[in-house]
Design a protein around this nucleic acid. Structure first.
Lengths: 209, 209
DNA sequence: GCAAAAGTGTTGTCATTACACCCATGA
DNA sequence: TCATGGGTGTAATGACAACACTTTTGC
């Protein structure tokens, strides 16, 4: 008896994965959690999850991010979709990769963040996802991205460090200040830095349009 | 009797769609074909197809592009994945969107190309896919992209037109020539334009690295 | 000789780079 | 008073913008 071949195309689960970046101590850090189940048990992995019926990838991701960080209204952006048929040994799951950017002062617990230049072996293709996310971040660095990585108000030198970390090079302090102040993107906040054992900095904030 | 809920996640087919651009007559054109079956019968749609088992999206796309244009080794690039659960009325199909760029002299039949500023109603969410592809193209315009859109050798003024169409503005001829010649990206070809009823142009080509 | 597109230089403005010292605070 | 990071100006260079006429070919 011959079974009619209705459909020789593949069906798959659809996953999202978030590469959540923060900048702290002049380094880029990414959120990872430990897998409790096989496959890749005890290895670190990116947060993510499968799309439920009626969900877009963006809705699934917003739901997941809120669960993970407790922050509402995360900033995130698609950067690539990973479709290698063997990327999950259990079954075919394609993953839509997002970057999510977060100011470190919004993170209540930093222990799940890992420096991107000292990552151990990761589950699945998550190393590849992170590598591509970093490439995307460096290539698309702009004030909208940097805004997300900064606290509400900040010294100019902290802003400079964020640019330096992402661009991977030192910037001239005087030139940086000149440029950023002339850009019209930021303004002086009404408060000043306190409790530092050096000259307190003026604090600035991004002008929300 | 209660049915055990094994999996409340969605499975879906995975499609790729290609937004194939050419530039001709100082306009941007996109490849579309007419749907022969419902849904959206007789409307125009983007080329694409479903992933087969063991195929990555990139492999599926390369296969499809070769079928459509006859060209091997197409240049293409992912730009966005579309996951609206209602984007296909038959079942859940998510689509990975690619741009593909092609020199118009490689196209044997131009009848399936449509000017992007005069598109009729399209099938599915394909209008949205094209809009996003155009945005991506404009935002990421670089010499690698432009190279794909040019014939092997070309007059500088044709190159200028390609930049003008993508950027959506006129460029100064002298400044354009100065800049592009100083960039080190192109070199004079050994041949010269023929059979034109005006002064024949020197032809140039991109230096393949 | 006319139509059509190819090709060519100079000047002003603005953005970017390079570079080194004094300032305000807490301990 | 010392340690720590905050904060400042000027000059040289390079990139980009504005601008109009001559050249070469086919018909």
């Amino acid at each position: 008896m011959e079974k009619k071949k209705i459909n020789h195309y593949e069906t798959a689960n659809i996953a999202v994965n978030a590469v959540i970046f923060i900048i702290k101590d002049q380094k880029l850090w990414v959120y990872l959690s430990t897998r409790e189940k096989a496959p890749f048990q005890n290895l670190l992995e990116l947060p993510g999850g499968l799309l439920q019926p009626k969900e877009t990838a963006e809705i699934t991701l917003a739901r997941k991010l809120k669960d993970i960080t407790g922050v509402k209204n995360h900033f995130f952006q698609q950067f690539h979709t990973f479709t290698n048929p063997n990327r999950d040994p259990r079954s075919r799951i394609i993953s839509i990769g997002f970057i999510a950017l977060l100011a470190y002062d919004k993170v209540s617990n930093l222990k799940d963040f890992h420096q991107i230049d000292a990552l151990p072996k990761l589950a699945f293709d998550h190393k590849e996802i992170i590598d591509r996310a970093i490439k995307y971040l460096k290539l698309n660095i702009d004030s909208q991205f940097v805004d997300q990585l900064m606290p509400n108000s900040f010294p100019l030198n902290d802003l400079q460090i964020v640019y330096e970390v992402i661009e991977g090079k030192k910037l001239d302090n005087r030139n940086f200040r000149k440029k950023i102040l002339n850009s019209g993107l930021i303004q002086k906040a009404k408060i000043v830095q306190k409790n530092v054992n050096h000259r307190p900095a003026s604090l600035y904030q991004f002008i929300k349009s």
